[in-house]
Design a protein around this nucleic acid. Structure first.
Length: 415
RNA sequence: CGGGAGAUGGUAGAGCGGUUGAAUACACCGGUCUUGAAAACCGGCGAGGGUAACACCUCCGGGGGUUCGAAUCCCCCUCUCCCGGCCA
């Protein structure tokens, strides 16, 4: 959630920021008005409550002094009715506010470039040069089947479309990648976590998936629980509703989890292969940082994810997302795209975001500053890395003319 | 899944239906003392909203109810602990 006081006090500026992220003026104004209405309704309600508390005290006093309370009782009853009606107004105002506020995206960081969609994203740099093939490189789905690394048909049989089975050496490489990623993250100071793959609605709201993106989530029937779409949810919410001390910041967390996504809006996209699945493995980095330090930690996380790809010998590029392509919660995002020779394209394999205080405000993650004040932390998250897509990248980049696949040097000790 | 006990501030742990947002202890922060530290002593110390700052409002697991007034009484839910069943 954005800072509504900031919106109120710096309306023009806030509006300009949200416009960069393509939030319509109507929504911004609706939010602004809902906030002011809620504040007013609350103020009048509190006034009536204060009055009621006074009368109650007086009532007690009368009783002790054995004075007659009939008159007072009438006053109290009248005020009680007033409170009830004011309460209703205030509750409605709060609900209305919450509805807009929770669905309004985060402000973009100053450094975010303007733009409509992914075409306006800005490339930062390319790392490693794509290999030149002296044969026609195969697609990973062909290589996967050929080498018995991936079984697409049986994945569909077991579940439904967009599920697959990784087997044999493919499964071993998948596992090796997870271990390699976790070790790399640990070497940068990230603590490793094994977390629940099912989280409750409060946590999903904390990181911003709910209420707006319910359609993208697998919900457990009859329960207030969801399969996590990313480890960002449990890792960020690990400190949900807690107050940390400034000294322990930054807190760096990493963990491997499967991720579950309905891919509701992706009909027809990447239907072949392993690029877009309902379930995929990912190793995630999460940081809780002092607001002054989050930019610095962001760079570290980008660097780390890129380094991992470099160690694997996979050509990739770094891209800063423009305002129009930024996700709901992110204030700034760098995508890392890996080279897929068969498609002759860079495809997203990691996305690192600085979320600022947006999730912290929702999830109530604060820290006690040196001056004793409670402030919101900044949260950051990023994949290091998406495991399935890395497997795809290895297959395609390390394929031989006969369809065989070489294993990257850094992974061999894990096999 | 069945039987019993409980849920209060960072932790432990009081709390009569009104002056208790909450005793006390420990932890923590600041100060005195000390070469420094410890000990001792003094002071501070829950959260959210609201305000220029006060005032004021809300919160004692969550939600309802009784009452002029509830942490304290009643109901429901959740969670934790102990006993039994099941089980990786």
């Amino acid at each position: 959630m954005i800072d509504l006081k900031y919106l109120q006090n710096n309306f023009q500026e806030a509006q300009a920021k949200l416009q960069k992220k393509h939030v319509s003026d109507e929504i911004i104004e609706a939010l602004h008005n809902a906030f002011i209405e809620q504040k007013q309704a609350n103020a009048t309600l509190e006034e009536a409550k204060a009055n009621q508390n006074q009368l109650s005290k007086l009532f007690g006093q009368y009783k002790r002094e054995k004075k007659d309370t009939t008159e007072l009782k009438l006053q109290v009853d009248a005020n009680k009715e007033l409170i009830a009606s004011l309460q209703e107004i205030a509750s409605k105002a709060s609900e209305a506010l919450e509805k807009v506020a929770l669905s309004t995206p985060n402000f973009p960081h100053e450094s975010v470039p303007y733009g409509e969609d992914e075409n306006d994203n800005v490339e930062i740099k390319k790392v490693l040069t794509p290999r030149v093939f002296d044969f026609e490189p195969k697609e990973h789905w062909d290589l996967g089947t050929l080498n018995n690394w991936i079984d697409f048909e049986r994945g569909v049989k077991l579940a439904k479309s967009r599920f697959s089975v990784i087997r044999g050496m493919g499964a071993k490489v998948e596992r090796a990648l997870i271990n390699f990623f976790l070790d790399e993250n640990a070497s940068k100071g990230f603590e490793e976590f094994c977390v629940p793959f099912i989280n409750n609605a409060t946590m999903l709201q904390g990181t911003g998936q709910l209420p707006k993106f319910e359609d993208d989530l697998f919900k457990i029937d009859g329960e207030d629980l969801y399969l996590i779409p990313t480890a960002e949810v449990p890792l960020t919410n690990f400190y949900h509703d807690e107050i940390l001390s400034a000294k322990e910041l930054p807190i760096l967390l990493t963990g491997y989890t499967p991720c579950f996504r309905k891919e509701a809006g992706s009909a027809g996209r990447d239907t072949r292969g392993m690029i877009r699945q309902h379930q995929f493995d990912k190793v995630e980095m999460v940081a809780l940082a002092h607001p002054d330090k989050s930019d610095e930690i962001f760079e570290m996380m980008v660097e780390n994810a890129s380094n991992i790809l470099t160690k694997l010998g996979l050509p990739h590029r770094l891209v800063t997302l423009c305002g129009g392509d930024l996700g709901f919660s992110a204030s700034k995002t760098v995508d890392i795209e890996v080279w897929l020779p068969a498609q002759q394209k860079y495809r997203e394999i990691s996305s690192i975001s600085n979320v600022g205080d947006f999730q912290a405000r929702r999830a109530k993650i604060r820290f006690k500053d040196e001056d004793g004040k409670n402030k919101l932390v900044h949260t950051l998250n990023g994949s290091a890395l998406a495991v399935g897509r890395t497997l795809v990248a290895i297959m395609e980049n390390y394929q031989n003319a006969d369809g065989g696949i070489e294993i990257p040097e850094v992974l061999r000790k894990y096999l």
